[in-house]
Amino acid sequence: MPKYTFRVNGRAVSADSWDPAQPLLYVLRNSLGLHAVKFGCGLGQCGACTVIIDGRAARSCSTPVSQVAGRSVTTLEGLGTPERPDKLQAAFITEQAAQCGYCTNGMIMSAKALLTRTPNPTPEQVKQGLGGNLCRCGTYTRILSAVLRAGKA
């Protein structure tokens, strides 16, 4: 079975996949046990599966594992822990910016990529920057506050 080697959260990993077209999402969740990333649509429409690949937000549901070989992936687990959340996660916690929490992974990862490009975004920049991430529970205003808080900090 072909083996794909890449970096995840700073560690070198290798994962077998019988199918080079297997989306990174399934490899992260099922081979590497990284469950923060979520399956939402498999179509790149909702953003729940967002990870950062080489510094850019990417949809892991529609990124074949073969395309990730040799690259560097960051998942939500790579930011911080419950005891030591990173600045952005801490801002989400302070703002209580979640209801069901299924979109949270994608919101934080998209925001992380946005803040890397634009460290102090305006509200409009945040709204546009997270425009590809859906939240069905309607926690958008809190997510906006959290990202702005992290941007200012």
């Binding site: 990284l34 923060a36 939500l76 911080g80 822990t81 959340p85 989400f92 929490g101």
Partner: peptide, 19 residues
């Protein structure tokens, strides 16, 4: 009072039924 589960949800440590 803060919801303790939000900390887990924001750090990817909640076990959803999907997980």
């Amino acid at each position: 009072v803060l919801r303790p589960e939000v900390r887990k949800k924001c750090t990817g440590t909640t076990v959803f039924v999907q997980d």
